[in-house]
Simulated assay, not measured.
Amino acid sequence: MTGIIDRSRADSRADIYDRIVAERRSVRAFLPTPLPADLITRLFTVAGRAPSNCNAQPWTTHIVSGASLARIRNVLLEQARAGQIDPDVPLTSTYVDQYKARRIGSAVTLFEATGVGRNDTEAREASFLRNFELFDAPHAAFFFMPRYFGLREAADVGMYAQTLMLALTAHGLGSCAQGALSHYASAIKRELGASDELICLFGLSFGYPDEDHPSAAAITDRAPLSETVILHD
């Protein structure tokens, strides 16, 4: 009958969604196997259903694979080793209070999983450079928006990327959203032929996760709801 909710079906859908959200994680090691082109099209079509202010859909996404990805990887590594960043969006220079604690906790979790010692400078540097190796992923996406947009539209791009990451998880795939990939915006745009009227917000490595890599054990926790949500009766 119209208007009557099938509760059992709704509960089942909710359980599936809860599992997908819980299973999504930042994957830091990928298998070299590329995704089929039609699957990539499907995933980004689903991502395009994300909401945006006034339905502006402010995102422009460059998907990089194959030889193009190899060139981008080399460019990023070269820039990272040179150490001269030029992000379109200013970096957060200081994390304080609980935000600092959460950031440190995440780093410790990854270092412990991958056997990187606290005082092992060389290993820590190699771990950092893994970002620019794209964790060996067969694909990467770079997210841009027009320069004249602001925080509101940047949030829209974030919702678009989250929709994409959940879609990837639902298909048994992995991803890692990487703000570090936007540190070298000029080089990225030059390599991709992207207009300077766009700003690079962040990148995303994606593909089939390598579950045998030590980094797969690095599962970060989340703050309790009491720290992040304020309820008003």
Rank of each mutant, 00 (worst) to 15 (best):
A82P: 06
G83A: 06
G203H: 03
I4V: 14
D120Q: 05
R28F: 14
H213E: 15
L181V: 00
A101Y: 02
R102F: 13
M1N: 10
H62L: 11
A123R: 12
Q79M: 15
S182E: 04
L35G: 05
R19T: 05
F142I: 03
G105P: 02
A223C: 09
L164Q: 01
E112W: 05
A67S: 15
D233V: 14
A10V: 09
V116E: 04
S52D: 01
A123L: 09
A154M: 15
D196K: 12
G48A: 14
E125K: 11
V75E: 00
G158E: 03
K100I: 02
R71W: 04
A161S: 11
R7V: 12
V96N: 12
A217I: 10
H213Q: 13
H213I: 11
L91N: 08
P32Y: 09
Q98F: 14
F30S: 01
P58S: 08
Q178I: 02
A161Q: 07
Y160D: 01
P58G: 07
E78M: 03
T45L: 13
A170T: 05
A47T: 03
D11S: 13
F111R: 08
R147H: 07
R24C: 06
I4H: 13
T220Y: 11
Q98N: 11
G105H: 04
G172N: 05
E23V: 08
S182L: 01
S205Y: 03
G172V: 05
R124W: 13
S205G: 05
T169S: 02
N119Y: 12
D97T: 09
G207M: 01
T114R: 11
A50G: 06
A29Q: 05
Q57N: 08
E23L: 12
R222W: 09
E112S: 04
I230V: 15
T114C: 11
F135M: 06
R9Q: 15
S93F: 12
R124N: 09
A177G: 11
E211I: 15
V116C: 04
F132I: 03
F30K: 01
I219Q: 10
A107P: 04
L134R: 00
M145K: 08
S186Q: 06
D221C: 11
H171V: 05
C200R: 02
E197I: 01
V64R: 00
R42V: 10
G193Y: 11
P146V: 05
S186E: 03
A177F: 12
R73N: 04
H139L: 00
L192W: 06
M145R: 09
D210Q: 09
A180N: 02
N131D: 03
R13G: 07
N55T: 14
A167K: 00
M159G: 07
A187M: 01
P51N: 09
T61G: 02
P51H: 08
A67F: 07
G179T: 04
A140N: 01
L198E: 01
R71K: 11
Y148R: 10
F128D: 11
M159R: 07
P224R: 05
L204G: 04
S106Q: 11
M159N: 06
G203E: 00
L134E: 02
P224K: 03
